[in-house]
Each structure stands twice: as structure tokens, then as C-alpha cells.
Design a protein around this nucleic acid. Structure first.
Length: 292
DNA sequence: ATGACGTCCTGCCTGC
DNA sequence: TGCAGGCAGGACGTCA
């Protein structure tokens, strides 16, 4: 699932290819994915605008447009952004009869939900599970549907995410540490993969209550979060199921995972079997021996 | 305010 | 082989 490193990889690939390009057409293949405003207004508002920058906030990918507009993508569980050549034949907008597959290009855009036609290529938003969303904001709009976006806190890789900040956010909390790592108003950009990996590196069991962490453990966890995210970015993200890069290639960080997707396999450190347990409503992997 | 959990969504996997 | 049912999980709403 796309977390901070995956979105950052997409951003880095996208930026040089789409900056200063004009959106010449917008095809909404499934209107549920338009989170704001109404799908009809959405399309009209972005056509003929130019992309001025490609940025990112936690797991949100942002295309800055002319006229002070922002196109904000959230890929949720299975979303992907694909850049495809212009030669690709595009369907006409027929949301009622749309079946998900587009002739001749089934593999590439089988689950296309939104297509932005740019001056030199097509930007395709795929989302098999249809939980992903796209939002268009004008000026200083802050619609309720984007509450989470406006409540994001610091990203663990940012300088503001230091020991004082982290300790202040978690030290008095009773919740499971795993669940606080997933909280976007505490650790913006962290998801299930990187939370499990960071806890492993810090040697902390995901079942621990946050207040029970010692100062040294909070510090270790802080460094682990930063390390695991930075290494995820360096390796173009983690492909375990749906995630892929803008040209369809896989990421590489799956080759360096210690616990995620490794249940029942031996721990790289001690050889114990990696445990899979539902914690904080998430499939959570950890080493029963190395993580205390 | 906090913590736990249900809901959304649909392709895919498992088991009969 | 076919099908039903369960699972995956990020964000958000609800409830205690």
C-alpha cells in the first residue's frame, strides 16, 4: 500500500515529466473517486490549467496548478499513478457503461478511474478497490472531506519530528504504540508496512502501550522511523501487492523487509518465526524474540 | 480528549 | 471447476 516512500517515489518521477504541462482534457471513469467538488465541476475546473509543481504531504500527492488550484490525490490501499504515451487511445466518458478495461491496453489501465490528458502524455489514476480519492482545491478552501489532510502533523523524516516532539505526542498515551504510529496526526505518512519495520528495528513489540516505552526506546523508535522511511525512498518504495512506479516498475524495498509480509519465516536476527497478529485492526508482524 | 472498533470497496485467495 | 465467503487496510465516523 502506498505510504510516504511510495508517494515520494511517484512525486520524484512525475515532476520532471509533467511540470509546465497543460491539462487538455479530463476523463472521469468512475465518479466516486472524485472527493471534492462535484464531479461535473471538477472536470471543468482543471481543464486548460497548467501544472506548476508536484509536491507531497504525507501520503497525499499534490499537483499545483495555475489559478491557485491544487489537485490532491490519495491512493489509499491500491492506487497507482501511471504515465503513458499519448498514442494510447482513450475512451470517451461513459461512466454508466464503463467496465474497467480499455481496448488494447488492458494491463496498463485496467482499473483506470481518472485520466488527465496532458500536452505530451496521459496521467492515469488507477485504483482497483476504488477507495482512493482526488480532490480539487481552489485558493484557501478547506472542505470537511479533507479534514485528515489539514490535520496532518510532522513527517518522521522532517527535522521538526525530533525527540521532544515525538515524546510529547506519545509518552502519556495509553494506546498501543502500533496504533499511534498509524495516527496521521502524530506520524504523518506512516502506514502498516513502515510501522512494523520501524518497531522491529527498535526492538519494540507492537502490543506495548505507548506510556510504557522508556526514554531510550522512544529515541530508538524515532531513529528507526527516520531510517526506515529514508531507506524506503532510496529503494523506490515497497512492492508487495499493488504498488508500482509511474512506468509500471516495482519498488525494491520489499527485498529489505524484516517482518512485513514475512509471517512464519525466520527472523533475520534470531531465527524465530515471525508472528502475525491483528493489532489495532491491522495485520501486524513482529519477531516474538527480538521485540520486547 | 482518548481509545476501540465498524464501515467503505473490490480483487484475490481459500476451502468446500 | 465453480462459487461463496473472508480478507486486506487508510481514513473517518461513532460510541463508550
Amino acid at each position: 500500500m502506498p505510504e510516504l516512500p511510495e508517494i515520494e517515489t511517484i512525486r520524484r518521477e512525475l515532476k520532471p515529466k509533467i511540470i509546465n504541462k497543460k491539462i487538455t482534457d479530463c476523463i472521469v471513469l468512475r465518479k466516486e473517486i472524485i472527493g471534492y467538488p462535484e464531479p461535473k465541476i471538477f472536470g471543468k475546473s482543471i481543464v486548460s490549467e497548467t501544472i506548476t509543481d508536484v509536491t507531497r504531504k504525507a501520503k497525499y500527492l499534490i499537483l499545483n496548478l495555475t489559478q491557485n488550484k491544487q489537485l490532491i490525490f490519495h491512493l489509499r490501499l491500491s492506487g497507482a499513478i501511471i504515465l503513458s504515451p499519448h498514442s494510447l487511445s482513450l475512451p470517451s466518458f461513459d461512466a454508466e457503461n464503463y467496465s474497467g478495461a480499455i481496448d488494447g491496453t488492458k494491463n496498463l489501465i485496467k482499473f483506470a478511474r481518472l485520466i488527465l490528458k496532458l500536452s505530451e502524455c496521459n496521467l492515469i489514476f488507477e485504483e482497483p478497490r476504488a477507495l482512493g480519492r482526488v480532490y480539487l482545491l481552489k485558493g484557501n478552501e478547506q472542505p470537511d472531506v479533507l479534514k485528515g489532510y489539514f490535520n496532518l502533523s510532522h513527517e518522521p523524516i522532517s527535522p521538526e519530528f525530533d525527540f521532544a516532539y515525538f515524546k510529547n505526542k506519545i509518552a502519556k498515551r495509553k494506546a498501543l504504540i502500533k496504533s499511534l504510529l498509524l495516527d496521521q496526526s502524530i506520524c504523518a505518512g506512516i502506514g502498516n508496512i513502515y510501522s512494523d519495520e520501524a518497531l522491529f528495528r527498535a526492538g519494540i513489540k507492537p502490543l506495548r502501550r505507548a506510556y510504557s516505552l522508556k526514554t531510550s526506546e522512544i529515541f530508538k523508535l524515532l531513529l528507526s522511523l527516520k531510517d526506515v522511511l529514508n531507506q524506503g525512498i532510496e529503494n523506490f518504495g515497497t512492492t508487495v501487492s499493488d504498488y508500482k512506479r509511474t512506468d509500471g516498475r516495482n519498488g525494491k524495498f520489499q527485498n529489505f523487509l524484516n517482518v512485513y509480509a514475512r509471517e512464519n519465516e525466520p527472523c533475520h536476527i534470531c531465527g524465530a518465526k515471525i508472528t502475525l497478529k491483528k493489532i489495532a485492526s491491522r495485520g501486524t508482524r513482529y519477531c516474538p524474540k527480538c521485540q520486547k
